[in-house]
Amino acid sequence: MAPTLSNGFSMPAALNCDYPKEITLNSGFTMPIVGLGLFRMEGKDVKDLLLHAIKTGYRHFDCAAKYKNEAEVGEALAEAFRTGLVRREEIFITTKLWNSDHGHVVEACKDSLRKLQLDYLDLYLVHFPVATKHAGVGACVSVLDEKGVLDIDTSITLEATWRGMEDLVSMGLVRSIGISNYSLLQTRECLAYSRIRPAVNQIESHPYFQRESLIKFCQQHRVYITAHTPLGGATANTIMFGSVSCLDDAILKGLAKKYRKTVAQIVLRWSIQRNTVVIPKTSKAKRLEENFRVFDFELEKEDMDLIKSLDRNYRTNQPAKSWGIDIYA
């Protein structure tokens, strides 16, 4: 067994030992450390890839109403359960409340459950810490004003949204609740007003955007970090946001050669050894399998320190490009 820190998190085990493949949230439920992110996946690709992922060993799937593919995910899950490929209790499903549904938390959650063909969610997250103009439950649009700026609804507070999230737990619709893309101060405020504390804060984190202070704060208060965009977004974010991917970094390529692993495996392993959950996204079966093979090696401390030196405070996911306003400012 890996030793446990005073804050409740497990230290990395010795090389090739039984490194834990799941963590225990403050809600008491367990969550697999490696999951599959389903952002930017459409149609038949979702079903085929998800079923292949289950056969590969994935048990954690990260969804969102905004991704517009919950129905396809639901079809894949229903087939997996029906054929005995996996049982519902073996699967961890996360989905998220979109900005335009902050005033309709229960209805939005039920809409996601209907599409996913599930009776409960393992984890439900507030996708972004901003409420926007409502356009119908599940519509998941980003309404802009006449100047092309995101139409933020100032009548809905994040505390009111969180009360709705807490209601979902009381109703038995959700096992654990959490937040996403919250800053350190927003996380602190949520901890102050919450009756049920957030179990997770899902944030962008990778070697070029390490978020050390936020991660330390969350871990100190037993809020687990899930790293979205753990590979820096790669080609997809380069196309969408014009960003640079850490996967092209010469130092990371050198470490990949040293450990005889892919650069992606090095980056994911680094993230895991920081005690964060990772949800890499890929639409390629080969990379899907590679991303899951990160438990059979361990990065040496000197290499963890080397990767730490790569931090550029560089965010690759930039919604301001379509919203006309930077919510991180």
Rank of each mutant, 00 (worst) to 15 (best):
I177R: 10
D122P: 06
F81G: 01
D167E: 15
Y124G: 06
G148D: 02
I225D: 00
G57A: 05
T282L: 11
E72P: 05
R188E: 12
L85Y: 01
G164T: 15
V141N: 13
S213N: 08
A71N: 05
N16K: 10
D151I: 03
R88P: 09
S10R: 12
I307N: 03
G136Y: 00
L25W: 00
Q202C: 07
E42V: 12
W323H: 14
H127C: 11
K257W: 07
E302I: 10
A80E: 01
Q210T: 01
I251N: 02
K281R: 12
V34D: 04
G242E: 06
R88N: 07
F81S: 02
S309E: 08
R163G: 08
A199L: 12
Y124E: 03
I54H: 04
G232H: 05
K21T: 15
Y19H: 15
I177G: 10
S10V: 05
L231C: 05
T24E: 08
Q220T: 15
D101K: 10
G172P: 10
L231W: 07
I307S: 03
K44C: 02
V278F: 01
Y67M: 03
L231N: 00
F292C: 00
V137L: 08
K110S: 11
H206S: 03
L144D: 11
G172V: 08
S10F: 14
S100L: 07
K257M: 15
F61D: 04
H104I: 07
L125R: 04
V169E: 11
P129I: 00
S309L: 06
L118T: 15
D48F: 14
S194Q: 10
K257C: 14
V46M: 07
A160E: 15
M171Y: 11
L36E: 03
L150S: 09
V137W: 12
E298P: 00
E300F: 08
A76M: 00
M31E: 06
I33S: 10
G232E: 03
H221F: 13
R40T: 13
G254F: 11
I239P: 11
E159Q: 15
K66Q: 07
A256K: 06
G8I: 04
L85E: 08
C218S: 12
A250L: 13
T238F: 14
T262Y: 09
H228W: 15
I33E: 06
K321G: 04
T276D: 01
D151P: 04
I54W: 06
F81Y: 02
V143C: 10
R59C: 04
K147N: 14
R260H: 15
R188N: 08
L214F: 01
L97R: 13
P12N: 05
R269D: 09
G8W: 04
L38Y: 01
S205M: 10
Y328T: 13
A108Y: 02
L50S: 02
G242V: 09
H102S: 05
D119C: 06
D122Y: 00
K308N: 11
V294S: 12
R197K: 15
V130C: 10
A76S: 00
D111W: 07
E302C: 12
A250T: 09
Q265V: 06
E302V: 10
A227N: 02
D296Q: 11
V278I: 15
E22F: 05
V174W: 14
C140S: 11
M171H: 13
L85R: 03
L125Y: 08
